[in-house]
């Protein structure tokens, strides 16, 4: 299958891998014509985290209205489109299946090719809306579900060179936030508290000295929780801002040091920091500071905050690369909840 040649390559992109239903129309991989994001955060707040069955039910409520709104806001009609793109994994299987079912039905009804997109490639390509990606390039993907370093030697080739062995960084933020009585998701609030506090607790920096690019955050989470519980038992109240600052300092130091080492071992033109945790101000400041000192030649790209979370636009951007690779799917496309875009390395 190939792409119908049209003057403007317009892709309708659908993302439903977790708790956001999102549909975008993207032109030539670089321009967002619309990007509708329906967030379920208020719902999952009730349970302190994402409940997969609840997420799937919300996606069915939202999917067609998001598609319609994305088309209306972009001023694009189905016959103007070149293709439909959809996230096929990784993510929650029930959630992925809603976007996939809708994208397949829409593609068939309008006689359009279907492009399957990896969710993590989408996060990387959110950077393409800031500046065109140059290769080789490195990406640090940090979110509630992932913490990985990805080496991108050429366009569309992804190699995971390091990843978390337990909790994702964003997951640790949410668990620690719960102990401090913050509502889910607590990353933004912890970031703000950290700004006001000091690193007085000196939590461990897991795996920072090891000669690999893997991460671990469950030990940090445990020492944080123990610290808080022990002080509670003694009847002491620790300064929450200092706790937040100490936790955040440990996370961002490990992320920055490991990323810096990775970029020293694999020289790259650009470093892309993507995923929900890429919105963290502390992380942004530390990365900028350390890279300007040690690797000033490397261009740092942080996607705008509204493109750091899950969204359809990033899927649309990554879809252009997949289309160029000739990567299309048929009506039998299935969700791959545990998919990995990494090639053998």
């Amino acid at each position: 299958m190939s792409y119908p040649i049209k003057e403007r390559a317009l892709i309708l992109a659908v993302e439903s891998s977790c708790d956001e239903t999102s549909v975008a129309v993207v032109e030539n991989g670089r321009k967002i014509l619309s990007n509708v994001v329906a967030s379920q955060i208020l719902s999952h707040k009730r349970f302190g985290g994402v409940v997969p069955e609840v997420a799937s039910r919300h996606h069915v409520e939202q999917i067609t209205i998001c598609m319609e709104t994305a088309l209306i806001e972009s001023g694009v009609s189905p016959k103007d489109l070149s293709a439909v793109a959809v996230t096929y994994g990784p993510g929650l299987v029930g959630a992925l299946l809603i976007g996939i079912s809708a994208a397949k039905a829409f593609a068939w009804a309008n006689d359009l090719p279907l492009i399957p997109v990896d969710h993590m490639a989408g996060h990387i390509y959110a950077a393409n809306f800031v500046t065109p990606l140059k290769f080789p390039s490195m990406a640090l993907l940090v979110s509630g579900g992932h913490t990985e370093l990805v080496y991108i030697e050429t366009e569309g080739s992804y190699k995971i060179i390091g990843q978390t062995r337990d909790d994702a960084a964003g997951e640790a933020y949410d668990k620690v936030g719960r102990v401090l009585g913050l509502s889910y998701p607590s990353g933004k609030q912890l970031d703000e508290m950290a700004y006001l506090g000091q690193d007085t607790f000196h939590f461990p920096r897991a795996m920072i000295k090891e000669a690999n690019f893997d991460f671990s955050f469950s030990g940090l989470k445990s020492s944080f929780i123990n610290m808080v519980h022990n002080s509670e038992q003694r009847g002491e109240k620790l300064n929450p801002n200092d706790l937040a600052a100490s936790f955040q300092q440990s996370v961002i130091e490990v992320l920055t040091v490991k990323t810096l080492h990775a970029c020293q071992k694999y020289p790259v033109k650009q470093l892309i920091i993507a995923g929900g945790v890429a919105a963290n101000q502390g992380l942004r400041a530390k990365m900028k500071h350390d890279f300007s000192e040690k690797l000033p030649e490397t261009e740092l790209i942080f996607p705008p905050i509204n493109l750091c979370g899950d969204n359809g636009a990033m899927i649309g951007a990554a879809a252009f690369v997949e289309a160029r690779k000739g990567h299309f799917a048929g009506g039998d496309l299935n969700a791959e909840p545990g998919s990995s875009f990494s090639e053998e390395f």
């Binding site: 799937s56 999917i63 189905p78 079912s101």
Partner: peptide, 19 residues
Amino acid sequence: SYTGLRIGVTTAKTLAWTL
């Protein structure tokens, strides 16, 4: 089956809407 229902209903409502 919840997943089965969602596949059928999502496909049906997408078809009805776009067609």
